[in-house]
Amino acid sequence: MSSETTAKPTESELEILQILWEKRNCTVREVHEILTLNKEAGYTTTLKIMQIMHEKGLVRRDTSSKTHIYSALASQEKTQQHLVSRLIDNAFSGSAARLVMQALGNHTSSKDEIEAIKKYLNELDHK
């Protein structure tokens, strides 16, 4: 999130942020249509969540035209860093290694992903 933004996104807000990070700018209707591809959601619920996100400083709203356009103010990288740090602290007693072992044990990684992980670990080892 931006240095001024300390709000923590809820699960629903995070789903909307992911859409905005990918698409850059969207109307509520566009966000709603993407959300309903994977789950049932009412348009007014999507609208209300996005209004709350605007109040929290997670999104920017351009009101210069009839249809309001939303974009993310919260940085994807900083939001992910915050969420991972919170997960490590709360679920893994502060152990990043336990998180990594759990993640790799529970999910199948592609050869490319495993190579990227090895490369990253090698780079950390040589710092």
Rank of each mutant, 00 (worst) to 15 (best):
G94M: 00
S12D: 13
V28N: 10
S71F: 04
V59G: 03
K78E: 09
E40G: 11
E30H: 04
G94L: 03
A7I: 00
N106L: 10
Q18P: 04
N122G: 05
E33T: 10
I16S: 01
T36N: 11
E77P: 02
G94C: 04
T5P: 00
R29W: 11
T108N: 12
E113K: 06
K111W: 09
L17F: 01
K23M: 12
R29K: 15
I34N: 06
A103Q: 09
G94E: 02
S3F: 12
A41E: 07
A74L: 05
R24A: 10
L121K: 10
C26Q: 05
K23T: 13
K8S: 11
A103D: 05
K111T: 05
K48C: 06
E33Y: 11
R86D: 08
L83M: 00
R60P: 01
Y43V: 01
L35N: 02
A103S: 08
N122M: 08
H82C: 08
K8P: 00
T67Q: 13
I52C: 09
K23Q: 14
G42Q: 11
K119H: 14
L83F: 00
G94K: 04
H54D: 10
E11W: 09
M53W: 02
Q51A: 06
D89K: 15
I49F: 06
S95G: 03
K78F: 07
A72I: 04
T10Q: 03
S3I: 11
I19C: 06
M101Q: 15
H32N: 00
